[in-house]
Each structure stands twice: as structure tokens, then as C-alpha cells.
């Protein structure tokens, strides 16, 4: 027991500090992906509920592709694909270099795209809840299209979409673990290194699971606070 505690301590013999930076990287990656994914998902949802058939088609192709691919494969496609693509572009300018894509950036793009394709469905369902009268009323008092969206629709939309987005956040948090495979030093990679060096895999991978669990519990607290706040500022339905 003492030996295990030493291994987990923050001192020179312990792995605590390495794993703590891993936690920061995981949380950082998830937080960095969130706004990107939310905005992208919102625009894809706008496309899918457009009256213009070509817009809808373009949005549907996006979600079909990125919801159908395994998360790990999307990550590899973006990681290796971007590397090869950038190398070919630089080769056009006559420079032969090998380009290493940053794992954090590749992870952010891949996770953001996956998050947005699911978020678009959540937003789309929320759009359907908002009655037509809200748009008509807003136009009747002379609001423009964008102002209607920003001032009237969006505040209601977010309130309806919050529970769905909370679930997606938990999925996002768990999916960040995949980025360890392309070399990002997140929780799973740091604990994996510790497990290999100390030959205590159960201790460290158990700790990794526990840390993800703690993050999930913390985020569910935050989310219920946000939902309470949103419910307070909104009317009753």
C-alpha cells in the first residue's frame, strides 16, 4: 500500500506530477474543442433545417460521413492526411520537408468535427421544438433575419439543447483518450508510460479510469448548475 502511495506521490519517485499534467492536457483539449465543435455544429444544423434542398443535402453528407466513421479512423485520416497534404503542398513550392502535425491540433480538429456532427442533430431537434410563431412574431416587429436568430431563437434554442449538449460533452471528454494514440500526453498516455516503467499496470490504468470518472462527475455538477441557471432565466413551458 505504501509502495503504491509513493508511486502516486508528487515527489521525485512518484508519477503524480506527470499524471496531473496529463489531466490538464485532457481537460485543455476538451475545452479547446468545445467552442469549435459547437459553432460548427450550429452552422451544420442551420444548413440541415434550411428550406433550400442543396443546403440540406450538403449538411446531410457532412453528418453521414462523420457519424459513420470510427472515431479512431477519423483521427488517423486527419493526422496522416493533413501531414501528407501539407507535404505535397510544400513540394509544389519545391521544398522537400517532412512535416509533423501537432497531435493537439489534429486531435482538436478531429474531435471538433465528430462533436459537431452529433451536435448538429441536437440543435436540429431543438430547432423543431421552437414554434414558427416565434419567427413570425420577430419578423412582425421588424427584426432582420440575423437579429431574429441571435435575439429570439438562439436563447430558447440553447435552453432546449442543453441536456443533449451535456451528453455530447461527456462523450467528447471520453473521446479525448483516443488522441493519446497519436502521441498526445493526456491522462491515458501518461498513466500508460507510468504503467510500463513501474510494471504496475492495474494501479495506473485504474487511476486513469478513476480520473475520467472524476472529470465526468465534476462536469455533471457544472452542467446541472448551468441548467438551473438557464431554467431560471427562461419562461416556463
Amino acid at each position: 500500500m505504501d509502495a503504491a502511495l509513493t508511486l502516486l506521490s508528487f515527489g521525485p519517485d512518484g508519477w503524480g506530477d506527470d499524471i496531473a499534467t496529463g489531466v490538464l492536457v485532457t481537460v485543455g483539449l476538451a475545452l479547446a474543442t468545445l467552442p469549435f465543435g459547437l459553432v460548427l455544429g450550429f452552422f451544420v444544423a442551420l444548413m440541415k433545417q434550411s428550406e433550400e434542398p442543396s443546403m440540406r443535402l450538403a449538411g446531410n453528407i457532412y453528418t453521414t460521413i462523420f457519424r459513420g466513421l470510427p472515431e479512431l479512423l477519423t483521427l488517423f485520416l486527419i493526422f496522416y492526411g493533413a501531414q501528407l497534404g501539407l507535404q505535397q503542398i510544400t513540394a509544389l513550392f519545391g521544398e522537400e520537408t517532412t512535416i509533423e502535425i501537432n497531435a493537439f491540433a489534429a486531435g482538436m480538429v478531429a474531435l471538433g468535427i465528430m462533436f459537431s456532427s452529433y451536435a448538429s442533430e441536437v440543435f436540429l431537434a431543438a430547432f423543431r421544438v421552437i414554434p414558427r410563431g416565434q419567427y413570425e412574431g420577430a419578423y412582425a416587429v421588424g427584426l432582420s433575419h440575423t437579429r431574429t436568430m441571435r435575439l429570439v431563437i438562439l436563447p430558447q434554442l440553447i435552453r432546449v439543447a442543453l441536456p443533449g449538449l451535456g451528453n455530447l460533452w461527456l462523450i467528447l471528454l471520453k473521446d479525448t483518450a483516443l488522441v493519446s494514440v497519436i502521441g498526445l500526453s493526456d491522462i491515458l498516455r501518461q498513466t500508460g508510460v507510468a504503467a510500463r516503467v513501474t510494471k504496475e499496470p492495474f494501479l495506473f490504468f485504474g487511476l486513469a479510469c478513476l480520473l475520467y470518472l472524476v472529470l465526468a462527475v465534476l462536469s455533471s455538477f457544472v452542467f446541472s448548475a448551468i441548467e438551473r441557471w438557464a431554467a431560471k432565466s427562461g419562461g416556463t413551458r
Binding site: 483516443l178 486513469a208 479510469c209 475520467y212
Partner: peptide, 21 residues
């Protein structure tokens, strides 16, 4: 709660590498 709150990949590692302990 445990199995839905942790990543599948971490669970797989826990079983494949961890049970070696």
C-alpha cells in the same frame, strides 16, 4: 456509472494490461 463514465479504450487497457498485475 463506471462503465459509462470512463473511455472504452481505458477500460480495455485496464483489462488487457492491468490484469497482468
Amino acid at each position: 456509472y463506471f462503465f459509462r463514465g470512463t473511455p472504452l479504450i481505458a477500460q480495455t487497457f485496464l483489462i488487457y494490461y492491468g490484469l497482468g498485475s
